[in-house]
C-alpha cells in the first residue's frame, strides 16, 4: 500500500486540478483498501477543496475551475457516501440545507453554484431545482430536517418570493425551526434584513461561509 499521505495528496490534487475520474477512482481504491473514510475526507479531499478556495482568493482560479473542482468533490463523495451511511459515520456533515430558485424563476446558475460549493464543503444539500413554490421549500425542509433553507432569485420580479417563503414559515409556525439564507443577483444585505432572512451570501463562497455560521448558531441555540 502506498504511503497514506501520498494517497491523500493525490486526492487533494485530483480536486485541485478538477479531474473527476481521478477523484472518484481514488475514492474507490480507498474503499477497496479499507481506509478510514473520515481521514480520507478530512485529510484527502477537504484540503483539496480548501486549496481551490485559496487559489480562488488569490485570483488564480476563476469560476470554471471552482465549479469543476466542486463537481470532482461531488464525484468522490458519491462513491464514498453508501459506505459512510452504512458505517453511520457521524460528524462529517456540516449541516443540512434545502436550496432552490424561487417560484417563477427558471434561472439556476447561481443556485447550482452555491449548491455544489455547499456539497463540496461537506454540507448535505437537498436541491429542489428552479421555479420552486414557497410551501415546497418548507415541506422539503421539514422532511429533510434541514438546518437551513437557501433561497435564490435572479429576477427582481421573483425575488419577492423570498419574502413569501419567510411569511409562510411564520404562518405555519415554523420560522424558528430553520435558518433562511438568501442570495441571487437582485438580493443584497438590506433586502435580506428587510424580509427577515437570517443571512445573505453575495457569492457562492460567502454563502458557504454564512451557511456554516447559521448552522452553528442554530445548533448552539
Amino acid at each position: 500500500m502506498d504511503d497514506l499521505n501520498a494517497i491523500y495528496g493525490r486526492m487533494a490534487e485530483a480536486i485541485v486540478v478538477g479531474d473527476p475520474e481521478a477523484a472518484a477512482g481514488l475514492a474507490r481504491r480507498a474503499l477497496e483498501d479499507r481506509l478510514d473514510l473520515q481521514d480520507v475526507i478530512e485529510k484527502g479531499y477537504i484540503p483539496g477543496i480548501r486549496r481551490v478556495g485559496l487559489l480562488w482568493e488569490s485570483g488564480d482560479y476563476f469560476l470554471p475551475e471552482l465549479i469543476s473542482s466542486a463537481a470532482c468533490m461531488k464525484a468522490a463523495m458519491a462513491v464514498l457516501k453508501p459506505a459512510l451511511e452504512a458505517s453511520a459515520a457521524v460528524g462529517l456533515s456540516r449541516g443540512r440545507i434545502v436550496i432552490g430558485t424561487i417560484e417563477g424563476d427558471i434561472h439556476d446558475i447561481g443556485k447550482n453554484l452555491v449548491a455544489s460549493m455547499l456539497a463540496a464543503n461537506a454540507f448535505d444539500v437537498v436541491d429542489l431545482g428552479a421555479d420552486v413554490k414557497p410551501d415546497r421549500f418548507i415541506d422539503a425542509a421539514v422532511e429533510a430536517r434541514a438546518d437551513v433553507i437557501g433561497l435564490s432569485a435572479l429576477l427582481t420580479t421573483t425575488m419577492l418570493g423570498q419574502r413569501r417563503v419567510i411569511e409562510r414559515l411564520r404562518e405555519r409556525g415554523l420560522r424558528d425551526r430553520f435558518k433562511v439564507l438568501v442570495g441571487g443577483a437582485p438580493a443584497n444585505r438590506a433586502w435580506a434584513a428587510d424580509i427577515g432572512a437570517d443571512g445573505y451570501g453575495e457569492n457562492a463562497l460567502a454563502a458557504v461561509a454564512r451557511a456554516g455560521e447559521l448552522v452553528a448558531e442554530k445548533r448552539s441555540s
Binding site: 476563476f62 469560476l63 470554471p64
Partner: peptide
C-alpha cells in the same frame, strides 16, 4: 461576456 470571477 460572463465574468468568471464575479459571476456577473
Amino acid at each position: 461576456s460572463f465574468d468568471m470571477r464575479k459571476g456577473t
